[in-house]
Structure formats: C-alpha cells, structure tokens
Amino acid sequence: MDDHLLIAKAISSMVRNMAHFEVLYEAENGSVLINKFKTRDSVPDIVLLDISMPIMDGFQTAQWLQEKYPTVKILVLSMQDDEDSVIKMIKYGVKGYLHKNTPPAELEKALTNVTEQGIYFPNWATSIVLQTISNNKHKKLITSDEKLSHRELEFLHYACTELTYKEIADQMCCSPRTVEGYRDALFDKLNIKTRTGLAMFAVKAGIVKL
C-alpha cells in the first residue's frame, strides 16, 4: 500500500476516535480527492491536507478547493513547516496549519477551533506570519474598501505586526480603549474572532502584500 494512503488511514483512525468528528473518506493525493468530491453527494466540512503528495500536491489541491469549494475549511497537516510553505498555503485560504508530529489532543483542538471559530494556527505558525508581514517593506493599505473605515484599515495594518495593543494605540495617537473598539468592530464586520484571523484576512484580501 502507498505510504501516503497508509498515513491517511492512520490519521483517519485518530479522528474516528474523537467524539465530535467523523471521517467521510481518505485520499492519497489531490487528484483522488477531486474525484471523490465529484463522485460523492457529501462534501466534507474540513479537509485535512498534506503538502507532500504525489501526482497533485497540497498546494495545487488547496488552490483547487479555494476556487471550487471555498466554504470547505482546509487544515494543513504537514512536515513542511518553513515560511514559504506556510505563507503560500495561507494565500490559498487554509484555516489552520499543523506539523505532522502534532499529538492527537492538539489535532482535536485544531479541528474544534476551525469548526467553531473558523481558524487555528499554533504559536509557531502565527509567529511566522507576523514576522513575515512585519519584515516586508511593501505593505499596502486598501482605502477603497467601503466596509472598513480609514482608521480601521490603519489598525488592521498594525494588527499584522507584533506590536501590543497599547503600542498600537501609541502609533495611532489614541487610547487603548479606542484601539479595542477598532478591533471589536473588525471582529464584528469580518466575522473573525482572533488577531491571527485578522492577519490571515489581511493577507488574503491583499491589504498586506507579502
């Protein structure tokens, strides 16, 4: 049996032991997954996706899912934890990123958070994203988005750095409470619950260019 299918079955067995989740099927690569999507009536809420797969890898699969099934949440489970891989997958709309050595308890936590909050990135992945954004010199604010005010966009720009909320308030020449107001307004408008989620939105929407 192919190693990738063996790994998929092992992960499936792990998920089946979790109380609130069920497995619809396994796929050893992206091409097989596409065929299953096309030939079955049921589409999963979450896809656990590896990057290193034969025939059609995780990058290609995530891009296809983003285009064809944007409501399906992708949780990456991969040995590739480098900056380029994490950022590229975020651009393809993934909702979480885990190392393949993640223990079952964290995998269950990630699945629960993706289901309930829409996102799960452990500290190491969040640090990669924020550092990449902070180090990039070609940040761009979008001021034509009518849903967000200029000050909300300015806050979103700072939220994608590693500044604390108090430091953001100093940069924006306002009080910490006002900054919290911008944050809460964005949480409400964008249906996002975490600062990491705001950073993911900013990257995907092109508010911050990587």
Score class of each variant (00 low, 15 high):
Y69S: 14
K100W: 03
D57F: 10
A185W: 02
W124Q: 13
P44K: 00
T112A: 09
D3P: 15
V15A: 02
T112V: 09
A110V: 04
M200F: 01
N123M: 02
V72M: 01
K68G: 03
L190T: 07
Y165S: 06
M53A: 11
N123Y: 04
Q60A: 07
M53G: 08
C173L: 13
T178Q: 12
Q131V: 08
I74A: 03
K100D: 00
V23T: 14
F21I: 12
I51L: 06
D45H: 14
I51H: 09
L153C: 12
S12L: 14
L65V: 15
M79C: 00
R40T: 13
V208M: 11
N113E: 09
T39I: 10
F187L: 02
K209C: 05
S144R: 15
S85M: 01
E162Y: 07
I142Q: 10
E22I: 09
T61Q: 11
S85W: 07
G93F: 05
L5N: 11
V179E: 03
D2E: 11
V179A: 09
K109F: 05
S52V: 13
A105W: 07
L33H: 14
L24C: 09
D170Y: 02
L210M: 06
R40S: 10
V47D: 05
F21D: 13
E162S: 11
I11R: 13
F37K: 05
P44D: 10
C160R: 15
Q131H: 08
N135L: 10
Q117P: 11
V86I: 07
N135T: 12
N136A: 04
G58W: 04
M18R: 13
C174Y: 05
F201A: 01
P54E: 08
Y120T: 03
W64N: 06
D3C: 12
S78D: 00
K9T: 12
Q66E: 06
G96W: 01
I11M: 10
L5M: 14
T164L: 10
G181K: 14
L153V: 04
P70V: 12
Q63L: 06
K95C: 03
I142Y: 04
P104A: 02
G93T: 14
Q80G: 03
A125S: 01
Q63S: 11
C174K: 05
K91S: 03
T71I: 01
E28F: 13
Q80S: 03
K36L: 03
T178V: 13
T102H: 00
E154I: 15
V15M: 07
L48I: 05
Y182N: 01
F201P: 01
N35G: 13
P176S: 08
S31R: 14
K209P: 03
A199V: 02
I192E: 09
N17G: 09
E108I: 00
D50F: 13
A62D: 08
T194K: 15
L153N: 01
L107D: 00
I133N: 06
L107M: 08
P70D: 04
V114F: 05
D2A: 13
N29L: 07
I142D: 01
A185K: 12
P122H: 06
M79W: 04
T61P: 13
S149C: 04
A185S: 08
Q66W: 11
E154C: 12
K88Q: 05
M89Y: 00
V114Y: 10
A110E: 05
N35R: 15
M53H: 12
V179W: 04
N136T: 06
E167A: 13
S149T: 13
I142S: 09
Q117G: 07
I133R: 12
L163R: 15
F121C: 02
L6S: 12
